[in-house]
Each structure stands twice: as structure tokens, then as C-alpha cells.
Amino acid sequence: MLELKNAGKKFDSRWLFKNLNFQTQTGDFISILGPSGCGKSTLLRILAELDTLSEGSLTQPANTNPGFVFQESCLLPWLTVSENVGIGISSKTISLSEKQEQVQSILKTVKLKESGGLFPHQLSGGMKMRVSIARALINNKSVLFMDEPFAALDDFIRFELQEELLDYWKQHKMTVFFVTHSVNESVFLSQKLWLFPQGNQQEFKELDLQKKDFHPQQYRQSPEYFRLVTDISDRLRGRA
């Protein structure tokens, strides 16, 4: 279980956020939602231990095996797709053949089985993001941090990747922290939302969407989905 207690982050003299109190359970899919510049990515970086809190505390479970997906695909241009994905394996005890097996398996999952030998410059934007996700998922990651990973993609690829991510999460039930400024994306993907309302930085909200088991493609067309999108958009604007 991960817990944030009275967490606050200050940049120079300005508080980015303050008095955050959130808890997660293993296997939660949490979207961190709010307008640009509200501190979503900073919070994600703090959760991933890439940054520190200015006040309060963060309790993390021991021995987490985290994966991180940035907004850009962040691939090393001098490495092939397989080699880039292999970076995600942090274990030193794993043999080369096991490593290659894991790389092949995850490449199959992200539909890039035939592209292992290609270099990043030979890939489309969607393929690059798939490689980045594969690198984050490999080696049975228990926690996944995603910082607006689909923001730069077109709708068609974005919907496809959202559905694939959801399928993978349903199968493996790792904890996911997903930063986005899209209400639609957060409602579609997550079980819980951490809301950063606009212009009212003291009132952070945690919402449990209480979604039942659903088929991703049908869910996007459902009245429940539209109701939640409208409700959360209103909350973010401070109208609710």
C-alpha cells in the first residue's frame, strides 16, 4: 500500500500542492487529473522517487519493481527496439537468454514481435510509444508510472493503446499511476481519480469511479461513461 500524508510541494515560494492525503491499494488504476501546470507530473515524479516532498510523508511498499512511461517515448536512438526494451529489466541476476525471452514475450504483447531489430528512427510515433510501454511493463512490473503517455498521439492510436493498456492491467493487476489532463481518458482507464481542481489548490479530491466489469469498446459508448465525464469536468471547473 502507498500512502501520502499531508504531502506538499513548493517551487521557490509557491506551493504547487499542499495537504495531500491519498492512499492506494495494490492493483489500483489511478488517474491523476487536472489542468496543465497544476503539479500532476511533479506528484508522479515524487511517487516514483524522482523528486521529494517539501512537507509531509510518502510511504511506499518495500521492493517495488517500477516502470515509467514519459510523454515522449524516450528511446535510445543507438539501440534497437529489443535492446531499448531490455533496459527495463533492472535485475542483475537474470541470464542473457532469459532476458531475450522476456523481451520477445513483451514485444509480442505490444504487437511489435517483428520489429525487435529496428531502430527508433524507423518507427512511427505509435510504435515508439509501444516500445516505451513494453520497456515499462517488462519483468512483471508491480507499479507503473505513466506521464501523459498518449498525449502526442492521434485519436485512433490513442484509443487502441488505451484499450491494450486496460487489457494488460486487467490480466496483471499492477498498480498504475496515470497522469492526464483528459477527463475522457481518465474516466475510460481508471478505477480511481485524484483530482486537482482548477484554481482551488486546497481541495484535492479522490474519486472512486466504482466501475463494474465492462468491455472497453462498449464502455466508451455507455451513458455511465458520458455521465462521469460530465460530472468530473464540472468538478474540475468547480461547478459541482
Binding site: R45, A48, P66, F70, E72, I87
Partner: peptide, 11 residues
């Protein structure tokens, strides 16, 4: 981001 990536993967 790449530097942070190596940090996340404990390099």
C-alpha cells in the same frame, strides 16, 4: 527524461 529512466531502473 533518459537520465531519470536510468534512475528508475536503478542503474
Amino acid at each position: 527524461n533518459l537520465l531519470e529512466l536510468f534512475q528508475v531502473y536503478q542503474r
